[in-house]
Design a protein around this nucleic acid. Sequence first.
DNA 1: GCCGCGGATTTCGATGAATGGAACGCGCTC
DNA 2: GAGCGCGTTCCATTCATCGAAATCCGCGGC
Lengths: 294, 294
Amino acid sequence: MDGSPAPKSVLARGLTLLGAFGPSDVDLTLTELAARTGLPKPTVHRLLGELVGWGALERTGNGYRLGMRLFVLGQRVPRPRGLREAALPYLEDLYEASHENVHLAVLDGIDTLFLEKVSGRRSMPIISRVGGRLPAYCTATGKLFLAFGAPERLRRVLRAGLARYTPHTITMPGLLVRDLARTLERGYGINREESEVGVSAVAAPVFDHRRRVIAAISITGHAGRLDLDRLAPAVRTSALSLSRELSHATANGTLVVPAPALDHGPAVDQGDTGRSCRRASRASSSVATSSGAS
Amino acid sequence: MDGSPAPKSVLARGLTLLGAFGPSDVDLTLTELAARTGLPKPTVHRLLGELVGWGALERTGNGYRLGMRLFVLGQRVPRPRGLREAALPYLEDLYEASHENVHLAVLDGIDTLFLEKVSGRRSMPIISRVGGRLPAYCTATGKLFLAFGAPERLRRVLRAGLARYTPHTITMPGLLVRDLARTLERGYGINREESEVGVSAVAAPVFDHRRRVIAAISITGHAGRLDLDRLAPAVRTSALSLSRELSHATANGTLVVPAPALDHGPAVDQGDTGRSCRRASRASSSVATSSGAS
DNA sequence: GCCGCGGATTTCGATGAATGGAACGCGCTC
DNA sequence: GAGCGCGTTCCATTCATCGAAATCCGCGGC
């Protein structure tokens, strides 16, 4: 339960404690945290005290949870923020046109990381959550980063292995390479139930001023209902418009998008790369907005 | 530039460095960070190294910026997450009905903190950003927390003073109290250009199973075009539906919403409470989604 | 080409903050 | 009422941390 066998520096230990919270954890007890991080309990106790004092954690009855201040801080992170703000109008246009799940994603290491998601009651509920990640090779957005990116990227992905998520997941390197070639020539990426059964998606690349892919926009929905090739032009158009709008921002460095370290050797302890998401139950909740509005 | 005159603990210092990033800061140099935190440069240098190693910060040419990992971590914070996920469908319904800015907010100390924002191209661009904050007394959402909350809350707000943001801001305690009384009996809150000239809003409270206000939903838009009293029923309906959906989650503790410390004495170093937001330029960008989609 | 300057980086010995084993208190269950 | 799991407190030891000073680096001015 401890990739790095207990760091010695106080700061690193504190951060390790924060990192011990997985994507679906809510409350963790002191003992649990001590176990996960491999730190002695008294030490954990003291550090937790400081983290709570600062607002990174909050006490809850008998446990700890991530605190509001981390949420606020997270919203300030420049890379997602700039992209999201610029992209939102386009995502919303796409949503309004399709009423399906619309995603904005960037590459993070080997995974697609979702920066924003626009969806509604009518959209198919899918796993995927802002801040969540999925392997690049089995997502429409991720394939774009692999198809348009440096070959080294692809090599790293292949080296990590192609795990099977559904019967449609591409697990043969050769097939993936061919699929990526098609992606490149088509100009858009497709995922046919490769990450989740019954779920398909189309994605188009967002370029910076040098035509490097810095992000991707996708529409995701029910595999049966979604006509991917018909949606593709819409997604591409939006992505291109966004690229154009961003071009000056990427040129003058206002918006720095490429990951800072394209390949840090032993890779920063990623914490958890695995299945991140799961959806809140989203009960029926019959009543909706009714009364008239402009 | 240093509220707390340099904490001694290593962990606290590291966190202070993170907190030194304001809402609109992007890159900060080592020297700048040293100045803001009051820490000696070599110390800052060392700590920054560790923060970068963990992914809390990223190097950029000659400076540092908040790192992706903080964004991801921020998305895991349970309090906003649960609320957002439950509320999103309702917010989207309201947006679709009004095509104006729709907000989900909670009270944080003395401020309204925006957890989610749904808006589109047709909505009036306003200051306000997810993770941003505005004083409670001059916002539609904030007034709900004051009107429905314990009197102590209001007292704290008054003690902090009612600063003027626009000619319409309520700065007289007496007037505010009367406005809150009306808010309470009406069941919804109104803000007529009190925080920003030309911008008005209606907000309705979201209750937990004990009928305590845990959040608020609002519609914000052009003061001239928005018929607040006509929108109010829609907002209230949505808020009530959401309250009902949440009731079981709040009852069994799945969703813990009330701030953990309603009144911590000297108040956790809030970093920056002031004007948080500002909007990305949002250029014209003529092209929109065109091609047909279902 | 040389100098000066502001910032980032490295060094290194003294120091005290951090450490964690051990012990305690509390609320359970069996 | 003994046993157990968990959170909390103590405190003597020690090792990570500190920061003044020195060095390095890039840049612009002369």
